[in-house]
């Protein structure tokens, strides 16, 4: 039971990662492998601000804004030229792989490659005890915020007019433009929100491990791929379910199999889901090739 709770706690951070990613990868169908670098940069900005004595909520908010702005900048400088040329899907993957290496290397030079301690003061501490079970407040907060993000994003995408126009752009950019939707603005908003949620995820992960380095989040890229594929491309609810399932399975594998193989679980998940049910748990049918 305690393991299940630990798994859900890990899964809740994956939910946040997945929700940030699903907006870009799933809905807009732009695979940005630079996502994890946005997360790490934003988390480092939060860390630096925390060290100047800024209160936690302000520092986190500033980090999130930074993440959003960085993502918009990436979109405007690198991705928009590709989009305007109707470049193939692979181009986005390749261009962001290159960008990811650049951003990661620059961060490594800035931080001398060292692992920094991430202060936990100001984050929820202690644990809720129910019988023999212990539920750390930090993980409860992560889960609550994750679910809140999922709900808010779902509502926003399906009920608000801007969310609808974003989905229209995702469906067909040309048609949406003809209907008077500013597709450029839709992309910018999507990237901004995704960047903010992503940095939020990074901050909670750093707070739960109490450490942060230029490469401490690098495994999250494959986690994100696993969550998205498991949940189904573009489904916010699917990202939520996928994140929680992955978290539980990873913790169970660590306990019952071996801790080294834990890292391979996400990868095996990707492969199994791709073979058995490529559309994921809650995605649309996807297996149509040609």
């Amino acid at each position: 039971m305690q393991q299940l709770i630990n798994g859900l706690a890990l899964g809740s951070t994956y939910v946040l990662v997945g929700v940030g990613v699903t907006l870009i990868w799933g809905l807009l169908r732009i695979l940005t492998f630079v996502h994890v670098q946005v997360l790490t940069w934003g988390t480092f900005v939060t860390l630096w601000l925390l060290r100047t004595g800024l209160p936690v909520p302000l520092a986190v908010l500033a980090g999130m804004l930074f993440g959003g702005v960085v993502y918009i900048a990436i979109d405007a400088t690198v991705l928009r030229p590709l989009r305007s040329r109707n470049a193939g899907e692979f181009s986005y993957v390749i261009v962001t792989i290159g960008l990811a290496l650049v951003l990661e290397t620059v961060l490594r030079m800035l931080t001398d490659g060292s692992t920094e301690a991430f202060p936990r003061d100001g984050f929820p501490q202690g644990a809720l005890r129910i019988g023999s079970l212990s539920l750390p407040w930090l993980h409860l907060a992560t889960l609550a915020i994750g679910l809140l993000c999922v709900a808010a994003l779902s509502l926003w995408l399906h009920r608000s007019s801007f969310g609808r126009s974003l989905r229209a752009v995702a469906y067909s950019r040309d048609d949406a433009e003809l209907l008077g939707i500013n597709s450029g603005a839709a992309y910018r908003v999507a990237f901004f929100i995704s960047g903010m949620i992503t940095v939020l995820a990074g901050v909670f992960i750093a707070a739960s491990t109490a450490s942060l380095s230029y490469s401490s989040a690098s495994h999250l890229l494959l986690v994100a791929v696993a969550v998205i594929i498991l949940g189904g491309m573009g489904s916010v609810a699917g990202a939520c379910a996928g994140g929680l399932i992955l978290g539980v399975v990873e913790v169970m594998a660590q306990v019952h199999l071996s801790s080294e193989l834990r890292d391979a679980i996400a990868l095996l998940f990707i492969l199994v889901v791709l073979v058995l049910r490529p559309s994921g748990l809650m995605g649309r049918a996807e297996a149509s090739r040609v």
């Binding site: 169908r29 695979l31 899907e89 692979f90 993957v93 494959l222 791929v225 696993a226 594929i229 071996s258 080294e260 193989l261 890292d263 391979a264 996400a266 990868l267 095996l268 990707i270 492969l271 791709l274 073979v275 490529p278 996807e286 297996a287 149509s288 090739r289």
Partner: peptide, 29 residues
Amino acid sequence: VPVLRLRGIYFAMGSLALGQAIVVIIGAV
């Protein structure tokens, strides 16, 4: 054989997972 049924981008993601999985498992066993 199974993954080629999918759209190209899924194939790319799957191959990334496969490649990483090989290296991770080699390091773990």
